[in-house]
Amino acid sequence: MSEISLHGGDPSVLRRLNAAATLRALRGGGEPTLSELARLVGLSRPTTEGVIGELTGRGLVAEVAPRSGSGLGRPARRYRFRAEAGYALGLDIDAHSVQIFLADLNGQVIGSHRAGLDVGWEPPERLAAVRAAIKTCLSATGIDRSALWAVAAGTPGVVTAEGTVAFCTVVPGWQGLNLGRELGRSFACPVYVENDANLATMAERWRGVAEDTDDVICVLAGLHTGVGAVIGGRLHRGRWGAAGEIGMLPELGLRDTTAALTGVPTGSVRGAEDAAAEAVLTAAQHDDPEAVALVERLAARMSRGIAAMALAIDPEMIVVGGALTRAGDRLIDELRRQVRPLCLSPLRIEASTLGDEAVGVGAVRLALDRIDENLFRVD
């Protein structure tokens, strides 16, 4: 970035532009000197010094202690971005559990916590348990909730831009709940809510097997199978937040996937579906003929919905994660075999490398994205 003349311009806007450029350079890592930073950003040394003073006053930049053994004379002053200036909290809330991740402004996770939830709880009981789990996580890390700059939560169902769960069949009483507002009662910072499969897709592109892949579909295979999509490097939500919800069509084979594998009815005793599914998948990993046949049948059933998404979006990669992949790659291997012949383009189908952390990690990424929008805004 070249330094801009203030003649005829708004000095406050130019200061913000210079501050944003300097902050981005420091955010990239390292501990540059003032002169190195000025060259990197393309500003004069006096301007850079003024910007550093402003960012230091805002708590975003700190001077680094002089390096030992740096030679004769006074060592050059060095600066770093203060990732500990604020924190992002990511939540994954479903029928059976809540998982929490706390990260600094560089996305480094410094604490996590998981707590069980009763599938039969109504929203007030579920929310109380979520708040208690958040308190436990913050206490364990020694971070006060006033240090949180943004909170994001992932949950099953269609979520509006305002944080209302418009449609959900997985979590009792969730449909119609303004989850963003309810969670927001506990925080002074903004709270965002997003569909779980959408967040898993963001996580896989950020730190998973689809890192830096611009066109990717993420399939969360579980009780019901959700699908999220990143197109051109951006999460695709659709007009009403329902993009990817093709599992609503029974003909596409993505509804009641756990029940289809095991025969255990959806809505059975808590955990019965997951336990039965894990038993079948584990047996299939050990080449049990009956279990292998069940997995092949489920893959054939799911392949229609997954191929429909692939044909609509033409992604570079499909990532498969969720509860039905935790016992090994047998289901993923079968999906590779049965989905690819239905598609018209070369297609990679990969197992998630984030496992059951994908939704929570994606929630952290969403919170950080919203923090960055404010951190680097110049209007």
Score class of each variant (00 low, 15 high):
Cys137Thr: 11
Gln285Arg: 08
Ala25Asp: 07
Val269Cys: 07
Asn106Gln: 14
Glu182Lys: 05
His236Met: 12
Leu199Met: 09
His236Gly: 09
Glu373Leu: 07
Leu23His: 10
Gly321Pro: 03
Leu261Ser: 06
Val41Glu: 06
Thr56Gln: 15
Arg185Tyr: 04
Gly90Ile: 08
Gln175Cys: 10
Thr160Phe: 09
Gln108Ala: 14
Ala128Val: 15
Ala132Arg: 12
Ala103Pro: 05
Asp333Arg: 06
Leu335Arg: 04
Pro11Trp: 07
Gly57Cys: 11
Leu89Ile: 07
Cys218Gln: 14
Ser2Arg: 15
Ala310Ile: 01
Gly184Ser: 08
Val359Pro: 01
Ile306Lys: 04
Val230Leu: 10
Leu366Ser: 06
Gly176Arg: 01
Glu245Asp: 15
Ala279Ile: 04
Gly244Asp: 09
Leu37Pro: 11
Gly271Lys: 05
Leu179Asp: 06
Ser97Ile: 00
Phe81Gln: 05
Gly208Met: 08
Glu194Ser: 05
Thr201Val: 11
Leu179Gly: 05
Arg301Tyr: 02
Arg237Glu: 11
Asn374Tyr: 13
Pro265Thr: 08
Pro66His: 09
Ala284His: 02
Arg80Asp: 01
Pro315Tyr: 03
Arg27Asp: 15
Leu220Glu: 07
Val13Phe: 10
Pro124Trp: 06
Arg336Asp: 00
Leu17Cys: 10
Ala103Met: 05
Val171Asn: 01
Leu105Arg: 09
Ala150Cys: 05
Val159Lys: 01
Ala25Gly: 08
Gly69His: 13
Glu204Tyr: 02
Asp215Phe: 02
Gly30Val: 12
Thr33Cys: 04
Arg337Ile: 04
Arg370Tyr: 07
Arg207Lys: 14
Ala128Asp: 15
Ala21Glu: 14
Ala83Val: 09
Gly263Arg: 00
Ser2Val: 13
Ser146Val: 11
Gly50Arg: 15
Ser139Ile: 00
Ile349Trp: 02
Ile52Thr: 11
Val109Ser: 07
Ser97Met: 10
His236Thr: 15
Ile217Val: 10
Asp94Gly: 04
Gly184Trp: 06
Glu278Arg: 06
Leu298Lys: 01
Arg348Phe: 10
Leu235Tyr: 04
Ala62Met: 11
Ala19Thr: 09
Leu254Ile: 02
Ala19Ser: 12
Pro66Ser: 08
Phe376Cys: 10
Glu373Asn: 03
Ala242Trp: 14
Arg77Pro: 02
Gln338Pro: 11
Val320Ile: 04
Gln108Gly: 13
Leu91Cys: 01
Trp121Ser: 15
